[in-house]
């Protein structure tokens, strides 16, 4: 199970970072969304994994529970990352509508192959 969680975090991070490095707003926002998933799961996992031990107190005496604190932190993190994504989307949309371009860089990277690619696209 640990391998599954760790590898999921890794894959989400890698995908998120790759999209984050793209040149247009929309993929960057998607990348940030992926990265927020990764970070949230990462934080959650810092409480260590457990199955069938939800942190809801049982009326039947002694029972063990998983760590509730990371869960509480991640819960607000999920909501806040939604807020952040929303603001970013709005900024991206605004920039596109104002400038008619959704490039994120102020000037395109000076790359010969880059320009050639653009010509063929």
């Amino acid at each position: 199970m640990e391998i599954i969680v760790a590898s999921s975090i890794g894959v989400l991070t890698a995908g998120g970072v790759y999209l984050l490095l793209r040149l247009r707003t929309f993929p960057v926002i998607l990348g940030l969304a992926l990265l927020s998933y990764a970070v949230n799961v990462f934080l959650f996992a810092s409480g260590r994994l457990a199955t069938n031990l939800p942190p809801v107190l049982s009326p039947y005496g002694d029972a063990s529970y998983t760590d509730p604190l990371p869960q509480a932190l991640v819960l607000t993190a999920i909501v806040i990352s939604f807020g952040m994504t929303a603001v970013l989307v709005m900024i991206g949309l605004g920039a596109f509508l104002e400038a008619d371009s959704d490039r994120i860089d102020m000037e395109p990277e000076q790359d010969g192959a880059d320009a050639a690619n653009e010509g063929s696209a």
């Binding site: 975090i9 989400l12 890698a14 970072v17 793209r22 993929p27 790359d111 192959a113 880059d114």
Partner: peptide
């Protein structure tokens, strides 16, 4: 999204992304 990244740029970003993902994992 237009395809505008060169192969080199993709490779660079791919390496960075894999490094970050691998490290975090």
């Amino acid at each position: 999204t237009p395809k505008e990244s060169s192969a080199g740029l993709k490779l660079r970003d791919g390496v960075i992304a894999l490094g970050a993902g691998g490290g975090v994992a």
